[in-house]
């Protein structure tokens, strides 16, 4: 996987991508969107995969649920990974299933010993089924649990330590969660196990307010990346160096050019890191 900027692959852009062959580092797909038996999604993805690096991002495994993983769904994911051989596979620190229902959203978990045990058990099982490392993504959250006994970055660090999973640092989720929970983003990043970060996500968010008028950011993926997210991203890259970075834009899709420009902006920050490294080396000589 090139440590470059990539873009979330959307059906609306399939043809344009195949005709123009834009210069992007990689494409990312939501695993569940390619779990149909056949059809155009697979036709296009197979063609695009033959020219680009790929990451697969699951949204339905429900890793944070207090119940066994859906074995059928895990087999589907393993089949998809076998078929398309992505460079990276990621999932969320969240849950989405209860009883027979699937909620189609990423729901929050309290950070305590029992959640830790469920999450680690599930990640072990996924890594075994896939025969590879899974990346776990930090969540965008809107509420807190009084039951939590760990901070979010410490909890994630412990999951990574126990399971050997890698991490997907979603910088927009950091800004959203820190605003909503009244945490300091820089302290969050200081506590986050940056050594395990294999990929980053960037996206846009909306601004709202809670019942007592506190700012409430919503992880909407429907607009350009905010300045606060770009700034924090640049600091993280300054600390850990180049990493594959995805522009996520899932709602109110813009033109391909707009998406590509966002990716180029991320790439400018990656290149600025290289330039700064080069200048440091030159100064050292």
């Amino acid at each position: 996987m090139p440590a470059r900027a990539g873009v979330g692959l959307k059906a609306a852009h399939y043809r344009e991508i195949l005709e123009m062959r834009p210069d992007v580092g990689f494409f990312e797909v939501h695993a569940e969107n390619y779990m149909g038996a056949g059809g155009p999604p697979h036709r296009y993805l197979a063609q695009i995969r033959s020219s680009y690096a790929l990451s697969v991002h699951g949204v339905g495994l429900s890793i944070g649920a207090a119940r066994p993983l859906d074995a059928v769904h895990l087999r589907r994911l393993a089949g998809l990974v076998r078929r398309y051989q992505p460079a990276l596979v990621s999932e969320h620190l969240a849950w989405s299933t209860h009883g027979r229902a699937f909620f189609n959203d990423l729901l929050p978990v309290p950070y305590h010993a029992e959640t830790l045990a469920w999450v680690c058990g599930h990640i072990h099982q996924v890594q075994e089924a896939l025969g590879r490392q899974l990346l776990l993504e930090n969540p965008a959250t809107y509420l807190a649990f009084s039951e939590s006994t760990w901070s979010e970055p410490d909890f994630i660090a412990e999951v990574a330590r126990r399971t050997g999973c890698g991490l997907l640092l979603d910088v927009n989720n950091v800004i959203v969660a820190c605003t909503n929970q009244e945490w300091q983003p820089l302290r969050y990043i200081d506590a986050f196990p940056l050594h395990a970060v294999r990929q980053l996500h960037l996206a846009g968010h909306a601004t709202d307010a809670d019942a007592s008028g506190r700012p409430l950011l919503i992880d909407t993926h429907d607009r350009p990346v905010s300045q606060a997210v770009w700034d924090l991203y640049a600091r993280v890259i300054g600390r850990i160096g180049r990493r594959p970075t995805l522009i996520e834009w899932d709602q109110h899709l813009p033109s391909w050019e707009t998406l590509h420009r966002e990716a180029q902006q991320a790439e400018d920050i990656l290149n600025a890191f290289d330039a700064a490294q080069g200048a440091q080396h030159a100064a050292a000589r």
């Binding site: 209860h98 729901l107 509420l143 009244e182 809670d210 506190r214």
Partner: peptide, 29 residues
């Protein structure tokens, strides 16, 4: 916790789960 959360997701009459940063429940969140 997840059972209560799931119930409240499906039924707006149910009390919401979780708190704001001051530890108070918040319907809008």
């Amino acid at each position: 916790i997840q059972r209560a959360f799931a119930r409240a997701l499906l039924d707006p009459q149910e009390a919401p789960v979780g708190d704001d940063p001051a530890g108070r429940p918040d319907r809008l969140r």
